[in-house]
Design a protein around this nucleic acid. Structure first.
Lengths: 118, 118
DNA sequence: CACTCCTGCTTCGATTTTCGAACCACTATG
DNA sequence: CATAGTGGTTCGAAAATCGAAGCAGGAGTG
């Protein structure tokens, strides 16, 4: 069932427009997708190693995600395992500020404990 | 059911580490989450309007997502509807490069039809 | 007053996605 | 031969999502 891999120009889940950013949000909004990209950005990895790095995520979902990411041309399987393509590296780079943000977020939430509001 | 809202320091789905970026990937990796942030970044919106903007996404999930995003301090309900907090605006800004990337992605995929590689 | 229309949700059964242990096929090493 | 590693697939169970319907409240109209 290789149906419904998001691609720009293809209507995304929840967006009939086919706008590229909607396809991207659809693809990235699936469980484990960003995590897999994140892990591969640190080092290429084979199937089993990737699974171990992602706290032993379900192999069936990993298989599905790898198929989707490969279909989206973000990763490719080489001799030494899965690698980000140049398009994939580009995406991870675009996602880079997210890491910095997450630390600001952590700080903001710890400064003001869960309860009141700005 | 206020269980399992991702927060930095709290073990995320698929990451016991509690590292901020993992909590962020968990939160953002839930269906519709990024889309809701995306829509609210354009203009504040009430519940029903938000639902309409997101191709009539399921109201139950919208309700859940709004709770999660509010718990994460990324949005807050005002008189004129839901609004991004400063933390939320910061996140959307960090996600900004994603939009530019998605267009490069779209171009790359249309240049080279699904089949071969780099 | 009643009636209509909007709002922000909640409820709940149906559908889809994810989970995870088991399993298959293959290669290598002892 | 056994044992261990690889890249996966299979399939029943659990969890997440869907979506139509409903509820409560507020505003406007006649």
């Amino acid at each position: 069932m290789t149906a419904g891999v998001p691609r720009p120009g293809t209507p995304a889940r929840g967006s009939a427009s086919g706008r590229p950013v909607m396809a991207a949000l659809d693809l990235l909004g699936r469980r484990w997708t960003m995590r897999v990209l994140w892990e591969l950005s640190h080092a290429p990895a084979g199937f089993r190693e990737l699974q171990r790095r992602c706290e032993r995520m379900s192999s069936s979902v990993l298989s599905t995600r790898l198929d989707e990411l490969a279909a989206a041309r973000l990763i490719a399987l080489h001799d030494d395992g899965y690698r980000l393509t140049s398009l994939g590296r580009d995406l991870v780079e675009a996602l880079g500020p997210l890491n910095a943000w997450s630390h600001r977020w952590a700080e903001a939430l710890s400064d003001t404990p869960p309860g009141d509001q700005r």
